[in-house]
Design a protein around this nucleic acid. Structure first.
Lengths: 331, 331
DNA sequence: TTGTAAAATGTAAACGTTATCATTTTTGAA
DNA sequence: TTCAAAAATGATAACGTTTACATTTTACAA
């Protein structure tokens, strides 16, 4: 591989001037710039980012951690992040925590060793301590949290207003005439799922509906797969006419179970999900849902990071995106 | 940030021995190893991979390019790749080509500048020239293609036997009694979609069914959204009783359209998709499909790359994964 | 003890850049 | 013409490792 040295030899210019050309320095004449560029072309020169990173302290690498990459929402966010950051000539390293604090730490440690310029992080369910993140921030490496954020005073983050989304979804069911609405809740370890639960409860309260713990189901994936739980619930409470599920996959699954049980959606029971995953508009019936703004979230998180990267001072700001109610056939 | 130098000073040992400790060299006594480790702990030392990469020529970074990251299949493959490679202490840089040859080239160029140790690549629809990939391989940087591969003599690749999958899907429909089977084909620019078409055709031929070009639909996304095309097709050919779609999203969509038109699935028309995307088992009816082995593909591709990375010589091998027929309610 | 091989440690030069400071060349007003 | 300022270039020391080679220390057979 040709280096800056080879160009220097070929052109008779010093290392410094050659380097300046590739860094678009204004203090190099047009004539020599062309000479260098021509030589670079001839030698098929590729700058060595490792050397540049070592010397300058800037790696042009951004670390991204998500719980699972093959999750509709996260892959959507990453899609936007990658687009935005690669446009700004950054490379992105992606790691998965698989909901394990240990793996998350390992990834952060790797990021430090790799000298990343910034970090985008959606924390795992298990994460309770933020020492490593703090350490990064102390080293002036900007960190932007998205979707799943810790309770830290000083940090930047982009989240969805999950409470509001759940409130919207539940209110929508009520507006559509539902009297007995159940909620299929998510893992209570994940704070955004709790917020969805609160939104559901408050929407019911506001419209003077009864709130019953029996109507809030927190099921494991296996329990959910077993139709009998849902079946029994409907047998015991034939008046149930609305379901707010904390995720789209769950809502699709529930609709499937109801259809199997001969219960019609939306005629007898109206169902709304959360996420606005692609498939929701291709199902039968098409599923009403809350758009989670994955694209906007990725874009905004990337933009916030870029701003911190370009500005001298790291700015801390908390952005809250508003969810959007998508009304389709299932309600 | 503490460096090896600081440890050297603190312990009174030379840079070389300290370095040896972190590289698990056998030629360092247990006593000094402990001394170094203790000092590292005290100084909160983090190795600088950039420096190591520059000196050793090994970056411990693998570049991965896919057309779109927020695509069920690719995010599944990436999931396995990330798992496998991070276990082996590699970092992965992910780029998207967005089906553009130019962006793909840009990503590859970035990879070269970053001195990646290896590349995993699923080529874009538009890609026709492989100069950059060749250049990488000439520099002894192993490249493993997956899913979408070029027609290169010397290369490593992991693909699904798409022809076989389509053959299985179509044969399954025939076995279930379908007489008039249509195929909703994918973009002809993507070779694997053509192979699926061929598999469909050959399965029909083998069982002495007529093959008609009218029964092979190659629709744009917009055309597909417009139900009238499908509607007309069924009005003109009321005998159609089987549909093989080149993707699961499409099959879900078609089932949706059919249901809207009052056509029952699977009673009147049987539908099978391709991909085995998560949602296919939560729909109503549950969708029969062909498993695309995303997990196996990612794992195998990563393993092949690791092998080339560890062995002196780069081995070239073409792996073909066998698809699996998943029979559900839609057939 | 001595001698010698093996084990452990040390020296110092690289890897390809960037950036500070110094030097040379160019420009153009006086 | 001269001279100072501006523009362009150069010399060189880092950045934090690794590694080939040299040296010292240790172990142990003779």
């Amino acid at each position: 591989m040709a280096s800056i040295k080879d160009i220097s030899k070929l052109t008779g210019l010093s290392l410094a001037t050659v380097s300046r050309v590739f860094n678009n320095s204004p203090l190099v004449s047009e004539k020599t710039r062309q000479k260098v560029l021509k030589a670079a072309e001839k030698l098929d020169y590729q700058p060595n980012m490792m050397a540049a990173a070592l010397r300058s302290g800037k790696s042009k690498i951004i670390g991204v951690i998500v719980p699972e990459i093959n999750n509709h929402f996260f892959s959507g966010v990453i899609n936007s992040i990658e687009k935005k950051l690669s446009d700004a000539d950054y490379n992105i390293i992606i790691s998965q925590s698989h909901e394990s604090e240990e793996l998350e730490k390992k990834a952060l440690q790797s990021f430090m060793k790799l000298n990343v310029d910034g970090v985008l992080l959606s924390i795992s369910k298990e994460t309770t301590d933020f020492l490593l993140v703090q350490k990064l921030m102390n080293q002036k490496i900007p960190v932007v949290f998205f979707d799943r954020t810790p309770k830290l005073e000083v940090s930047s983050s982009v989240v969805l207003d999950d409470y509001k989304g759940a409130f919207m979804a539940t209110s929508h069911l009520i507006d559509k005439g539902c009297k007995q609405i159940i909620h299929i809740a998510g893992d209570p370890k994940v704070s955004i799922f709790n917020k969805r639960k609160e939104g559901y409860i408050d929407a019911l309260k506001q419209k003077n509906h009864d709130v019953s713990e029996d109507f809030i189901l927190t099921l494991t994936h296996d329990q959910l797969r077993d139709m009998s739980v849902i079946k029994q619930l409907f047998q015991n409470n034939p008046k149930i006419d609305g379901i707010f599920a904390h995720g789209d996959e769950i809502s699709l699954y529930v609709i499937n179970i109801l259809t199997t049980l001969g219960i019609q959606v939306p005629k007898q029971v109206k169902v709304i999900g959360f996420g606005n995953v692609d498939f929701t508009e291709h199902t039968y019936p098409r599923i009403s849902t809350i758009d989670q703004k994955s694209h906007e979230m990725g874009l905004l998180a990337a933009e916030m990071l870029l701003k911190s990267l370009n500005d001298e001072e790291i700015i801390h700001s908390q952005q809250i995106l508003s969810p959007e109610l998508i009304i389709r056939e299932s309600t």
